[in-house]
Amino acid sequence: MFIAATFAIFVAMFLAIIRGITGPTLYDRILAVNMFGTKTVLLISLLGFVMGRPEFLDIAIVYALINFISVIGVLRYSDTNKLKHMPSDEKSLDKEL
């Protein structure tokens, strides 16, 4: 049962990576990283149970916190002028829409 859930999370992580690489806008990438982080938290807690060493849960807590902090950091620093007005982003958006 744990292994099935682990596999499901692997699939979700893989999909998130694809979105993170292709993602047309900055926010798609942030979203993919955020989802990847929460999935990693779940993966580590599941791996602890699969391998019979549930002390891995400490790491899962660190992950949840670090993921939150880094997403906040990304958003905080994404709304400066240097990061807006990217010509290449506009182009890819046009293509997508």
Binding site: A8, A12, L15, R19, Y27, L31, L42
Partner: peptide, 29 residues
């Protein structure tokens, strides 16, 4: 519970990949 959770995770991943724009993707995730 694990089964339901796994299903939701995969469906969230599919939604992230397949939905048309950022806001719908964010909804799915």
């Amino acid at each position: 519970c694990l089964l339901v959770g796994s299903f939701l995770c995969i469906s969230g991943g599919v939604g992230l990949l397949r939905f048309p724009d950022f806001y719908t993707r964010m909804h799915a995730v």
